[in-house]
Design a protein around this nucleic acid. Structure first.
Lengths: 206, 206
DNA sequence: GATTATTGACCGACCGGTCGGTATTAATTA
DNA sequence: TAATTAATACCGACCGGTCGGTCAATAATC
């Protein structure tokens, strides 16, 4: 009777938006460019997304979901002491993002969307939720260390988790700014110090 | 013979730009809005700045210079052990920025300018220079601790400094995202752990 | 042939930057 | 001191280009 919509088209548009927004930023991206990158006409985008901002938000959701997916997969594979898992987690997070550093510009764009775009609240909330999920799984790991005696008992796992995630974010930002910067080495040095600081004074052997 | 230019006008424009860009972002700010906020006509802005981007860059320069100024003033007032000064420095940095959190949206805007604006390189370089200055003075402090035996000798002060500054940045970002977040408390917990991790194993008393 | 997904020419709101005219001040003159 | 003049700071109406979003026509599928 009728022509059927392509069920993959929405994803194709998001994939195209991902690279275009990353390269040119939100304001610098024209809808026609996304359409061309997706190999479709401009009008078709508006069959799948109400507006440019809607598409941008869908792109953020995609990226957050992807990151969360990657994180939970990773969490299952880690073994060893809490300290080992912590170091290894940091390594993986940094390495995963270094691989896709060209997408980092997009993260910056999203950050600034939390400040400037008319629909900033949605962006802010989405980010908050994403960070909160990541933070709580990291905090759970640190808590495990506090519980099993590997770490001091008088630490606040949530707070440490916040600061750690923050430092990873910022290391990646610096890598984005300065190609000579070594985020992995810096992260390792930092994590070594943090883990040493977390350990029980009576338990300082490496 | 001729009318003299008002030497304060440039600064007045920058001050107006500071708040307007912070509230609405770069793309969302119209030049006429800045002009109105400064109480002058639109054309006058172009007597002092070549273009909108030029004005934006001047605003970044102002903010960076201000931060550097504040930092060097602060550095002089700190006394006590290296560990004490480190903790105190973190406290001050966080508190200073919490006070002007409404300007934090501007920082996000600048970050994304390093990715998306046509003249991104200038923005990137300006940021790099600003961070580098801050980082090297922080690294010098940590180095002092390593030299005087307060801290371990086998640490890389530059790397630790990078990670610390990064975590402060990120804590402020989180405070910006989430009004319930406690950046000062989080920073203190984190700094306590880091300082403990930096100390000589033979020197663990608080 | 009926239905609907797709398209891109078109519209119009928007905004950065320009420029000719005006207002104001400082030097000059009487 | 007051009048005149020269220089230029200041202004905002206007222009031209841009781009998000629409919709009538077309193409593809049943």
């Amino acid at each position: 009777m009728a022509r059927k919509p392509d069920p993959q088209k929405r994803d194709r548009i998001i994939a195209a938006a991902l690279t275009t927004f990353a390269q040119k930023g939100y304001a610098g991206t024209r809808i026609i460019e996304v359409a061309r990158a997706a190999g479709i006409g401009k009008g078709t985008i508006y069959e799948y997304f109400r507006s440019k901002e809607e598409l941008f938000f869908a792109t953020l959701e995609y990226l957050l979901a992807d990151a969360e997916q990657q994180m939970s997969t990773l969490a299952e594979t880690l073994t060893g002491s809490v300290a080992d898992r912590l170091m290894s987690l940091a390594d993986h997070v940094i390495r995963d993002w270094i691989e896709k550093l060209e997408l980092y510009g997009l993260v910056l764009e999203f950050w600034s969307a939390t400040a400037a775009l008319p629909g900033r609240r949605r962006f802010r909330d989405a980010f908050n939720d994403g960070y909160a999920a990541f933070r709580s799984s990291l905090a759970a790991l640190i808590q495990e260390g506090a519980t099993n005696g590997e770490f001091k008992a008088d630490i606040d796992p949530e707070k440490i988790a916040s600061a750690l995630i923050g430092s990873w974010d910022a290391l990646l930002f610096q890598a984005w700014l300065d190609p000579d910067f070594d985020p992995l080495g810096t992260s390792r040095d930092h994590m070594r110090v943090v883990v040493a600081g977390l350990r029980q004074p009576s338990n300082l052997e490496d």
